[in-house]
Design a protein around this nucleic acid. Structure first.
Lengths: 313, 313
DNA sequence: ATAAATTTGACAAACATTGGACAACAAGTT
DNA sequence: AACTTGTTGTCCAATGTTTGTCAAATTTAT
């Protein structure tokens, strides 16, 4: 560690924290937010820790906390609050909509990732729930859950988090998606879709995402799960006459078995049933998919667009 | 599981819940929906629990409930409403009490099995939900979900239903269990338990059952998932100091690997952490479990009894 | 000398609070 | 149809509090 941490003058601190020197002094005077050292000529000199503190305070006030209430909390309490902070509402409202929804989504993804790393059940759920409030049902799927799923996959593969974290996250995300996929009004008229993924069970999240997305668009979705054979799907189709079969392929980017299964599936499907394949790895199978008359969709957004279109067609 | 006694100003609450500050105040004035603390200058300060309440109220009114009717319900009732479907059709009320709880459970299991065979999402959910109403949280776990999980396993192995049905059922049961394992009130004092299963991902349900059961008994449970290595568990224990590690072993009745893993686990566990192993296949490993000083529990009921006892010990 | 920091007091903008008023809507009644 | 009655979200005005910014006077750096 740092035995004799560098001390920094206020101007530098202001630059690093994005706060004005004025403000920093006022926070000190009024609320005792920090207590910097002084030179023998009364100049403030801030430690790294002070800077960290001020940065946190800046972000937290930005997102709605009032400075008077948090100024004296210790640094761990501040960090704890960061986990639950909502998206800064400070922007002029008009712009907020213009602002990329992806930006807002990122905020919640960050929160979710932190929660996962800390194994914080409630915090993860809150992040998702508040994301749903901020972005709407469809928005949270596209801009929070989908990127989060990928992020978790990445972090897992590069070892930043363990399997336990990954499963912990999956369980909670699945519950969240499951709640979303609850059939709303049992509306007889709305079209059906069957969802599944041909690949291993690890990648169920993709299929559940598709399911939730379908429900959000007003379809009646039946989720068949992972590692489903074409025969199973065909037989399920007899019980649930669906207009579309949606599949998600997330991982193996080039598996000849998957290609084979897709062809097989097409043979077993009735004529009028449309096949839509999405998920991260879908592009790798573009040729096969087009060959058998299916629709390849990339990111979730595109899948939803296709689904929307299929509804009229 | 907010350990934070922090209070939040109305602005922040508004951002987190998506309600306007106006509306929050009006709900308080007219219906007593929340009773926030006040600062010495009369400003409202909301607890995490208040926020949770308001979030739920917001979502429920959004989906059609009238605020006047739900404003004063307690938080558990609100959560129950979130999961509620319109149709509470049921059993003959009068006889209900006389029956053995197992008998009643059977009724719901039957309904659930039918729903699974027909791929009826709503019907399956209703069966579970109504089972929970009739038998209570613990009762539904012991007498409905646990037997149902076994039944599905059997039907699947003998080919009566396909993988698709099995996965379909798993997804919905998991969501149901996930909703049950939602951490309740921020209760700092309740003990922690980590749950997992060492075997393949197919048998997650067992572990989730244990998790839900623990929560029903007032524990704070962290679900780590399936195929978790001893190392993972030990490392998770550093983040979440738990008193008990609960494992579920459902399937391979005699796997030397599992035995090895269990021994390994014991080595890595701190002294005071207790190990409890349940699930269908647990008895096959009785020797190992006793050897390493763990507790073997058979059916879910027994697991819950042990957990109860461990709470005092 | 010019630029930057410090302290103090002052101020305006943003934010909260209370209480009342109002429009939109749904349901039941005449 | 017209009229009541009740519910619910929004808005206004008057008052008070919190917070960011500024100016003035003074001291310190370059």
């Amino acid at each position: 560690m740092k035995q004799n941490g560098q001390l920094h003058p206020i101007k530098l601190v202001a630059a690093k924290t994005g706060l004005s020197p004025h403000l920093i002094r006022v926070w000190e005077r009024r609320y005792g937010a920090v207590s910097p050292e002084r030179t023998d000529t009364h100049r403030r000199m801030y430690s790294e820790l002070d800077i960290e503190r001020l940065k946190l305070l800046g972000m937290l006030t930005e997102s709605g906390h009032s400075i008077g209430n948090i100024a004296t909390l210790d640094i761990d309490a501040l960090r704890a609050l960061m986990v639950d902070r909502p998206v800064p509402a400070a922007m002029p409202r008009g712009e907020q909509l213009h602002f990329d929804r992806r930006e807002i989504g990122k905020h919640y993804v960050d929160r979710a990732v932190t929660a996962i790393a800390d194994l914080k059940h409630a915090a993860l759920e809150n992040a998702l729930q508040e994301g749903a409030v901020a972005l709407g049902q469809q928005g949270v799927l596209i801009h929070v859950v989908a990127p989060l799923a990928e992020e978790v996959g990445v972090l897992w593969q590069n070892g930043t988090i363990g399997v336990a974290h990954e499963h912990f996250a999956s369980a909670i995300i699945r519950t969240f998606l499951g709640n979303m996929s609850r059939p709303f009004a049992p509306n007889e008229t709305s079209p059906h879709i069957l969802t599944a993924t041909p690949t291993g069970q690890l990648h169920e999240l993709g299929a559940m995402l598709i399911t939730a997305a379908s429900v959000a668009l007003g379809w009646q979705a039946t989720y068949l799960g992972a590692s489903i054979s074409p025969v199973e799907i065909a037989s399920a189709l007899k019980q649930k006459p669906a207009r579309v079969v949606g599949m998600s392929i997330v991982y193996p980017p080039d598996d000849p078995n998957v290609a084979k299964e897709l062809r097989r599936l097409k043979q077993l499907l009735p004529e009028q049933v449309r096949l839509m394949v999405g998920g991260r790895a879908a592009p790798s199978y573009r040729d096969v998919i087009e060959d058998i008359g299916g629709t390849m969709t990339g990111p979730l957004e595109q899948f939803m667009a296709c689904l929307q279109e299929a509804r009229e067609g």
